[in-house]
């Protein structure tokens, strides 16, 4: 079972690898669009990677209201704990 900590750490690695971000910038409260300069095309790449990570099908709607890193962690956690809900 993956903890929130695991999810956050994985997400940080992904963000650093995919988008050349500085790991220090990535906090739970960082806003993806404003603070981390992620655009809608990046979001598609990120969702693809999260699909691999969770092994779940991800509906784009699940990420529609995502604004911060914490929102992503929450969404991934929800996918992992309630697989049927995806």
């Amino acid at each position: 079972m993956k903890t929130r900590e695991d999810i956050f750490n994985h997400l940080r690695t992904l963000l650093v690898e995919l988008f050349e971000l500085d790991p220090g910038q990535i906090t739970l409260d960082a806003n993806l669009y404003q603070d981390l300069d992620i655009d809608s095309i990046d979001a598609v790449d990120l969702i693809l990677k999260l699909k691999e990570y969770t092994g779940q099908k991800i509906q784009p709607q699940a990420f529609k209201h995502v604004r911060t890193v914490r929102d992503v962690v929450d969404a991934v956690e929800a996918l992992l704990t309630r697989p049927t809900a995806a």
Binding site: E17, L18, F19, E20, I41, D42, D45
Partner: peptide, 8 residues
């Protein structure tokens, strides 16, 4: 390298 990095 990821496409996102080249685009940046």
């Amino acid at each position: 390298e990821a496409a996102a990095v080249a685009a940046r």
